[in-house]
């Protein structure tokens, strides 16, 4: 699984620019299920199982990742940008970025030597940051980059024991889980959506859920694990190596309590998400049409929305196993 995760994470797919990730996912699933691409670029897949389900189940992961979009090219050739999705300014300062998939640049800044007093302590306004691609004029820059092009932060893929360090774990871990489930034989029919535009407001999943019209949904995503030095136990949200993270409530959803309890008590390693924060595609899926019973299973990721997020493969496997279990429990009518 780790090799497939690497292939997924190194692809660039800023929200609205998910083409490369979509093509790769299709190459992985095309021999294992039926699928179609909708108007927003979502992949909606149908997996034929051995049995007819008593409830129609949709399992969702999002294709997109946070990134940058070029908004302006200065006379001096520097590029101005906006963030696509939430990125902490600290994670942008002095980083290498790849613009439009081929032009290397760096986010430049004032050398620390020239910063005085509070300027050293406080993050700058993200609007003051700029990308330097090494040109000296707008004409040179425009030959390489256009306004509207996306950029992603460059990163490596490093594994160390069960840990993986790379970008875009949110939500390529979810894509990995869905691909893995689609490749296996299924007990019951189910639908899978690889959705777009999650990071800019859960937009792809909204239309995917409308189209699939499920009775129940399982949302697979990465969630913040703050189990690091200096963070009080009460604020750690969840912990790596402790299994799948099951949410009772986050910033967008109050989850189906029966599903929540079933997921926590399945015998597969799982933990509660101990914070009411963040949100994921469950926020729109559970409100689709007349309402959809929804459970969120997440992989605990440290340093999420940065070029160097960390996950633990044992947790990814727990989420995969628990997803399969929940599909079967719901589709069979036991839940």
């Amino acid at each position: 699984m780790i090799e497939l995760l690497k292939q997924l994470c190194i692809l660039d797919g800023t929200s609205g620019d998910e083409g490369a990730v979509r093509e790769f996912v299709i190459s992985q699933i095309k021999d294992h299920c039926e699928y179609k691409i909708d108007n927003l670029g979502n992949i909606i897949a149908f997996k034929k199982g051995k049995k007819e389900p008593s409830k129609k189940v949709l399992i969702d992961a999002h294709l997109d990742e946070v990134g940058l979009i070029i908004t302006h090219i200065e006379e001096s050739g520097f590029l101005r940008f906006k963030t696509v999705g939430g990125i902490d300014t600290a994670a942008l300062m002095f980083r290498r970025v790849l613009v439009n998939g081929k032009t290397l640049g760096v986010i430049g800044g004032k050398p620390v030597h020239l910063c005085e007093g509070d300027e050293r302590k406080k993050l700058p306004d993200a609007d003051n940051l700029y990308i330097d691609i090494g040109v000296s004029s707008a004409d040179e820059a425009k030959a390489l980059v256009s306004v509207g092009d996306c950029a992603v932060m460059c990163s490596d893929f490093i594994s160390c024991g069960d840990k993986v360090l790379t970008k875009a774990l949110d939500d390529r871990v979810g894509c990995l889980v869905l691909i893995d489930l689609l490749k296996q034989d299924a007990e019951y029919d189910f639908y899978a959506s690889f959705s777009t535009q999650e990071e800019v407001g859960l937009r792809g999943a909204k239309v995917a859920a409308f189209a699939v019209e499920p009775d129940a949904a399982i949302v697979i995503d990465g969630t913040t694990a703050a189990d690091v030095a200096g963070v009080a136990a009460a604020k750690q949200v969840c912990r790596q190596g402790e299994g799948a993270v099951v949410s009772f409530m986050d910033g967008a959803t109050s989850y189906d309590r029966e599903y929540y309890n079933a997921a926590l008590n399945s015998g597969i390693k799982a933990q509660s998400k101990c914070a009411v924060a963040g949100g994921n595609n469950a926020g729109v899926i559970h409100l689709s049409r007349g309402g959809v019973r929804t459970v969120a299973l997440s992989v605990p990721c440290r340093y999420i929305h940065t070029a160097n997020s960390v996950c633990d493969m044992r947790d990814v496997i727990a989420v995969r196993d628990l997803s399969k279990h929940m599909i079967e429990q719901i589709a069979s009518g036991k839940l």
Binding site: G230, R302, V310
Partner: peptide
């Protein structure tokens, strides 16, 4: 480590001992 401010992450960057390496 990069911990979001609402979870107790750093907001004033004046002390490197608050910035741990994982």
């Amino acid at each position: 480590c990069a911990t979001p401010p609402h979870l107790g992450g750093v907001t004033e960057y004046d002390d490197i001992s608050a910035l741990k390496i994982d």
